[in-house]
Protein backbone atom coordinates (compact mmCIF):
# COMPACT_ATOMS: atom_id res chain seq x y z
CA UNK A 1 0.00 0.00 0.00
CA UNK A 2 3.07 2.26 -0.28
CA UNK A 3 1.57 3.86 -3.39
CA UNK A 4 -1.00 5.63 -1.22
CA UNK A 5 1.68 7.93 0.20
CA UNK A 6 2.83 9.25 -3.17
CA UNK A 7 1.04 12.52 -4.05
CA UNK A 8 1.01 11.80 -7.79
CA UNK A 9 -0.50 8.42 -7.06
CA UNK A 10 -3.15 9.95 -4.79
CA UNK A 11 -4.15 12.26 -7.62
CA UNK A 12 -4.12 9.41 -10.09
CA UNK A 13 -6.32 7.22 -7.87
CA UNK A 14 -8.80 10.04 -7.25
CA UNK A 15 -9.02 10.74 -10.98
CA UNK A 16 -9.44 7.02 -11.64
CA UNK A 17 -12.34 6.66 -9.19
CA UNK A 18 -14.11 9.70 -10.65
CA UNK A 19 -13.77 8.28 -14.15
CA UNK A 20 -14.86 4.84 -13.02
CA UNK A 21 -18.07 6.33 -11.64
CA UNK A 22 -18.97 8.90 -14.30
CA UNK A 23 -18.13 7.08 -17.54
CA UNK A 24 -20.55 4.15 -17.05
CA UNK A 25 -23.15 6.44 -15.41
CA UNK A 26 -23.42 8.45 -18.62
CA UNK A 27 -22.63 5.53 -20.89
CA UNK A 28 -25.68 3.57 -19.75
CA UNK A 29 -28.02 6.16 -21.31
CA UNK A 30 -26.03 6.14 -24.55
CA UNK A 31 -26.15 2.34 -24.66
CA UNK A 32 -29.85 2.42 -23.84
CA UNK A 33 -30.60 4.49 -26.92
CA UNK A 34 -28.13 2.54 -29.02
CA UNK A 35 -25.56 5.30 -29.38
CA UNK A 36 -22.74 3.31 -27.85
CA UNK A 37 -20.20 4.91 -30.18
CA UNK A 38 -21.24 8.50 -29.43
CA UNK A 39 -18.52 8.75 -26.77
CA UNK A 40 -15.92 7.85 -29.37
CA UNK A 41 -17.02 10.70 -31.62
CA UNK A 42 -17.02 13.14 -28.74
CA UNK A 43 -13.50 11.97 -27.89
CA UNK A 44 -12.35 12.87 -31.39
CA UNK A 45 -13.83 16.34 -31.12
CA UNK A 46 -12.15 16.85 -27.74
CA UNK A 47 -8.77 16.74 -29.49
CA UNK A 48 -9.42 20.11 -31.06
CA UNK A 49 -10.05 21.43 -27.55
CA UNK A 50 -6.78 20.02 -26.27
CA UNK A 51 -4.95 21.55 -29.23
CA UNK A 52 -6.61 24.91 -28.63
CA UNK A 53 -5.62 24.71 -24.97
CA UNK A 54 -1.96 24.29 -25.88
CA UNK A 55 -2.09 26.98 -28.56
CA UNK A 56 -3.63 29.53 -26.19
CA UNK A 57 -1.68 28.31 -23.15
CA UNK A 58 -4.93 27.62 -21.33
CA UNK A 59 -5.66 24.53 -19.24
CA UNK A 60 -6.35 21.79 -21.82
CA UNK A 61 -9.00 20.18 -19.60
CA UNK A 62 -11.21 23.28 -19.50
CA UNK A 63 -10.55 24.07 -23.15
CA UNK A 64 -11.40 20.51 -24.14
CA UNK A 65 -14.58 20.72 -22.05
CA UNK A 66 -15.68 23.85 -23.86
CA UNK A 67 -15.00 22.51 -27.36
CA UNK A 68 -16.42 19.07 -26.57
CA UNK A 69 -19.65 20.47 -25.17
CA UNK A 70 -20.09 22.55 -28.32
CA UNK A 71 -19.31 19.49 -30.43
CA UNK A 72 -21.75 17.29 -28.51
CA UNK A 73 -24.52 19.86 -28.82
CA UNK A 74 -23.84 20.01 -32.57
CA UNK A 75 -24.05 16.19 -32.74
CA UNK A 76 -27.33 16.15 -30.84
CA UNK A 77 -28.80 18.83 -33.11
CA UNK A 78 -27.71 16.82 -36.16
CA UNK A 79 -29.36 13.75 -34.64
CA UNK A 80 -32.56 15.69 -33.93
CA UNK A 81 -32.94 17.52 -37.21
CA UNK A 82 -30.59 15.77 -39.64
CA UNK A 83 -32.32 13.20 -41.76
CA UNK A 84 -30.58 11.01 -44.31
CA UNK A 85 -27.25 12.84 -44.30
CA UNK A 86 -26.98 12.74 -40.51
CA UNK A 87 -24.19 10.17 -40.34
CA UNK A 88 -22.12 11.98 -42.96
CA UNK A 89 -22.42 15.19 -40.93
CA UNK A 90 -21.31 13.30 -37.81
CA UNK A 91 -18.32 11.82 -39.66
CA UNK A 92 -17.26 15.31 -40.77
CA UNK A 93 -17.49 16.52 -37.19
CA UNK A 94 -15.51 13.58 -35.77
CA UNK A 95 -12.65 13.61 -38.24
CA UNK A 96 -12.59 17.40 -38.46
CA UNK A 97 -12.20 17.44 -34.68
CA UNK A 98 -9.35 14.96 -34.78
CA UNK A 99 -7.48 16.63 -37.63
CA UNK A 100 -8.02 20.02 -36.02
CA UNK A 101 -6.44 18.79 -32.81
CA UNK A 102 -3.34 17.44 -34.53
CA UNK A 103 -2.96 20.65 -36.53
CA UNK A 104 -3.44 23.03 -33.59
CA UNK A 105 -1.04 21.22 -31.30
CA UNK A 106 1.67 21.31 -33.94
CA UNK A 107 1.13 25.04 -34.42
CA UNK A 108 1.48 25.78 -30.71
CA UNK A 109 4.96 26.64 -29.37
CA UNK A 110 4.72 24.41 -26.27
CA UNK A 111 2.82 21.50 -27.69
CA UNK A 112 4.24 18.49 -29.48
CA UNK A 113 2.94 15.19 -30.67
CA UNK A 114 4.24 13.72 -27.41
CA UNK A 115 1.79 15.97 -25.51
CA UNK A 116 -0.99 14.86 -27.75
CA UNK A 117 -0.17 11.21 -27.14
CA UNK A 118 -0.63 11.71 -23.38
CA UNK A 119 -4.20 12.89 -24.07
CA UNK A 120 -4.88 10.20 -26.65
CA UNK A 121 -3.89 7.32 -24.42
CA UNK A 122 -4.03 8.80 -20.93
CA UNK A 123 -1.14 9.73 -18.70
CA UNK A 124 -1.89 9.39 -15.02
CA UNK A 125 1.53 10.44 -13.75
CA UNK A 126 1.19 13.91 -15.30
CA UNK A 127 -2.20 14.71 -13.71
CA UNK A 128 -1.75 18.06 -11.96
CA UNK A 129 -3.55 19.56 -8.96
CA UNK A 130 -5.24 21.94 -11.36
CA UNK A 131 -6.44 18.99 -13.44
CA UNK A 132 -7.81 17.30 -10.33
CA UNK A 133 -9.87 20.36 -9.42
CA UNK A 134 -11.32 20.49 -12.92
CA UNK A 135 -11.98 16.74 -13.02
CA UNK A 136 -13.71 16.78 -9.60
CA UNK A 137 -16.02 19.64 -10.53
CA UNK A 138 -16.92 18.09 -13.87
CA UNK A 139 -17.48 14.66 -12.32
CA UNK A 140 -19.77 16.19 -9.69
CA UNK A 141 -21.86 17.71 -12.49
CA UNK A 142 -22.04 14.40 -14.35
CA UNK A 143 -23.14 12.48 -11.23
CA UNK A 144 -25.73 15.12 -10.37
CA UNK A 145 -27.30 14.82 -13.82
CA UNK A 146 -27.13 11.06 -14.28
CA UNK A 147 -28.38 10.17 -10.80
CA UNK A 148 -30.65 13.14 -10.07
CA UNK A 149 -32.49 12.92 -13.38
CA UNK A 150 -32.33 9.14 -13.78
CA UNK A 151 -36.09 8.67 -14.15
CA UNK A 152 -36.41 11.34 -16.81
CA UNK A 153 -33.29 10.21 -18.67
CA UNK A 154 -34.45 6.59 -18.48
CA UNK A 155 -37.81 7.61 -19.97
CA UNK A 156 -36.38 9.57 -22.90
CA UNK A 157 -33.77 6.91 -23.66
CA UNK A 158 -36.29 4.07 -23.43
CA UNK A 159 -38.99 5.56 -25.65
CA UNK A 160 -38.50 9.10 -26.86
CA UNK A 161 -41.91 9.44 -28.49
CA UNK A 162 -43.75 8.31 -25.37
CA UNK A 163 -41.63 10.61 -23.21
CA UNK A 164 -42.76 13.56 -25.33
CA UNK A 165 -46.40 12.69 -24.73
CA UNK A 166 -45.82 12.64 -20.97
CA UNK A 167 -44.82 16.29 -21.38
CA UNK A 168 -41.12 15.84 -20.54
CA UNK A 169 -38.84 18.49 -22.08
CA UNK A 170 -37.27 15.84 -24.31
CA UNK A 171 -35.14 18.18 -26.42
CA UNK A 172 -33.61 19.84 -23.37
CA UNK A 173 -32.95 16.50 -21.70
CA UNK A 174 -31.34 15.12 -24.87
CA UNK A 175 -29.02 18.11 -24.98
CA UNK A 176 -28.26 17.61 -21.30
CA UNK A 177 -27.25 13.98 -21.96
CA UNK A 178 -25.00 15.13 -24.81
CA UNK A 179 -23.40 17.81 -22.64
CA UNK A 180 -22.90 15.38 -19.76
CA UNK A 181 -21.32 12.85 -22.12
CA UNK A 182 -18.98 15.59 -23.37
CA UNK A 183 -18.05 16.55 -19.82
CA UNK A 184 -17.38 12.90 -18.97
CA UNK A 185 -15.09 12.51 -21.95
CA UNK A 186 -12.92 15.34 -20.67
CA UNK A 187 -13.01 13.90 -17.15
CA UNK A 188 -11.77 10.60 -18.51
CA UNK A 189 -9.23 11.77 -21.05
CA UNK A 190 -6.37 12.18 -18.56
CA UNK A 191 -6.93 8.68 -17.21
CA UNK A 192 -7.83 6.41 -20.13
CA UNK A 193 -7.17 8.81 -22.99
CA UNK A 194 -9.50 10.15 -25.65
CA UNK A 195 -9.26 7.10 -27.89
CA UNK A 196 -10.37 4.72 -25.14
CA UNK A 197 -12.90 6.93 -23.31
CA UNK A 198 -15.81 5.36 -25.11
CA UNK A 199 -14.76 1.88 -23.99
CA UNK A 200 -15.19 2.84 -20.35
CA UNK A 201 -18.64 4.26 -21.12
CA UNK A 202 -19.80 1.11 -22.87
CA UNK A 203 -17.92 -1.99 -21.68
CA UNK A 204 -18.89 -1.85 -17.95
CA UNK A 205 -22.54 -1.41 -18.97
CA UNK A 206 -22.34 -4.30 -21.41
CA UNK A 207 -20.64 -6.44 -18.74
CA UNK A 208 -23.21 -5.56 -16.06
CA UNK A 209 -26.22 -6.41 -18.19
CA UNK A 210 -25.00 -9.97 -18.62
CA UNK A 211 -26.27 -10.50 -15.09
CA UNK A 212 -29.01 -7.95 -14.53
CA UNK A 213 -32.68 -7.70 -15.35
CA UNK A 214 -33.36 -4.13 -14.23
CA UNK A 215 -32.02 -0.75 -15.30
CA UNK A 216 -31.30 0.16 -11.71
CA UNK A 217 -29.16 -2.93 -11.05
CA UNK A 218 -27.37 -2.44 -14.37
CA UNK A 219 -26.55 1.14 -13.39
CA UNK A 220 -25.17 0.20 -9.96
CA UNK A 221 -23.20 -2.81 -11.20
CA UNK A 222 -21.76 -0.89 -14.18
CA UNK A 223 -20.50 1.86 -11.87
CA UNK A 224 -18.99 -0.76 -9.53
CA UNK A 225 -17.26 -2.50 -12.43
CA UNK A 226 -16.08 0.85 -13.81
CA UNK A 227 -14.61 1.90 -10.46
CA UNK A 228 -13.07 -1.54 -9.92
CA UNK A 229 -11.24 -1.68 -13.24
CA UNK A 230 -10.01 1.94 -13.15
CA UNK A 231 -8.61 1.44 -9.63
CA UNK A 232 -7.07 -1.93 -10.47
CA UNK A 233 -5.60 -0.55 -13.68
CA UNK A 234 -4.15 2.49 -11.96
CA UNK A 235 -2.51 0.40 -9.23
CA UNK A 236 -1.10 -1.94 -11.89
CA UNK A 237 0.66 0.99 -13.56
CA UNK A 238 2.39 1.77 -10.26
CA UNK A 239 4.11 -1.61 -10.25
CA UNK A 240 4.38 -2.29 -13.96
CA UNK A 241 5.38 0.09 -16.72
CA UNK A 242 2.19 -0.31 -18.75
CA UNK A 243 -0.08 2.35 -20.26
CA UNK A 244 -3.03 3.03 -17.87
CA UNK A 245 -5.75 3.45 -20.50
CA UNK A 246 -5.00 0.20 -22.26
CA UNK A 247 -4.68 -1.67 -18.94
CA UNK A 248 -8.03 -0.37 -17.71
CA UNK A 249 -9.88 -1.16 -20.92
CA UNK A 250 -8.40 -4.65 -21.19
CA UNK A 251 -9.42 -5.31 -17.58
CA UNK A 252 -12.95 -4.13 -18.35
CA UNK A 253 -13.13 -6.45 -21.34
CA UNK A 254 -11.85 -9.32 -19.16
CA UNK A 255 -14.68 -8.60 -16.70
CA UNK A 256 -17.14 -8.60 -19.59
CA UNK A 257 -15.91 -12.00 -20.78
CA UNK A 258 -15.95 -13.44 -17.26
CA UNK A 259 -19.51 -12.24 -16.58
CA UNK A 260 -20.71 -13.47 -19.97
CA UNK A 261 -19.34 -16.92 -19.20
CA UNK A 262 -20.97 -16.76 -15.77
CA UNK A 263 -24.30 -15.59 -17.19
CA UNK A 264 -24.87 -18.48 -19.59
CA UNK A 265 -25.64 -21.12 -16.91
CA UNK A 266 -27.61 -18.50 -14.98
CA UNK A 267 -29.84 -17.80 -17.99
CA UNK A 268 -30.36 -21.51 -18.52
CA UNK A 269 -31.49 -21.91 -14.93
CA UNK A 270 -33.92 -19.00 -15.27
CA UNK A 271 -35.31 -20.45 -18.48
CA UNK A 272 -35.84 -23.79 -16.75
CA UNK A 273 -37.63 -22.11 -13.87
CA UNK A 274 -39.93 -20.33 -16.31
CA UNK A 275 -40.73 -23.55 -18.13
CA UNK A 276 -42.10 -25.40 -15.11
CA UNK A 277 -45.56 -23.85 -15.40
CA UNK A 278 -47.05 -25.44 -18.59
CA UNK A 279 -46.32 -29.05 -19.44
CA UNK A 280 -43.52 -29.45 -21.93
CA UNK A 281 -45.55 -31.72 -24.20
CA UNK A 282 -48.92 -31.39 -25.85
CA UNK A 283 -51.93 -33.12 -24.38
CA UNK A 284 -52.51 -36.53 -25.95
CA UNK A 285 -56.16 -36.09 -26.97
CA UNK A 286 -55.50 -32.78 -28.71
CA UNK A 287 -59.03 -31.42 -28.26
CA UNK A 288 -59.50 -27.72 -28.85
CA UNK A 289 -61.00 -25.59 -26.10
CA UNK A 290 -63.77 -23.15 -26.78
CA UNK A 291 -61.52 -20.10 -26.52
CA UNK A 292 -58.64 -21.50 -28.56
CA UNK A 293 -59.83 -19.85 -31.73
CA UNK A 294 -61.88 -16.73 -31.77
CA UNK A 295 -63.11 -15.14 -34.95
Amino acid sequence: MEFLTEPFMQRALLAAVLVGITAPAVGIYLVQRRQALMGDGIGHVAMTGVGLGFLMSANPVWMATLVTVLGAVAMELIRMYGKTRGDIALALLFYGGMAGGVMLINLSPTGSNANLVSYLFGSLSTVSDEDITAISLLAAFAVLVTVGLRRQLFAISQDEEFARVTGLPVRTLNLLVAITAAVTVTVAMRVVGLLLVSALMVVPVAAAQQLTRSFRATFVLAVLIGTGVTLAGTITTYYQDVPPGATIVLLAIAVFIALTALAAPLARRRARAAETAPAAECAADGTARADDVRV
Binding site: I28, V31, Q32, R33, R34, A36, F154, S157, Q158, D159, V205, Q209, T212, R213, S214, F215, R216, T218
Partner: peptide
Protein backbone atom coordinates in the same frame (compact mmCIF):
# COMPACT_ATOMS: atom_id res chain seq x y z
CA UNK B 1 -36.10 -3.38 -27.17
CA UNK B 2 -33.75 -0.75 -25.81
CA UNK B 3 -30.08 -1.42 -25.29
CA UNK B 4 -30.20 -1.87 -21.52
CA UNK B 5 -32.46 -4.28 -19.61
CA UNK B 6 -35.41 -2.76 -17.76
CA UNK B 7 -38.07 -4.37 -15.63
CA UNK B 8 -41.81 -4.20 -16.18
CA UNK B 9 -42.08 -1.90 -13.17
CA UNK B 10 -39.36 0.46 -14.40
CA UNK B 11 -41.02 0.86 -17.79
Amino acid sequence: ASGVPATVREV
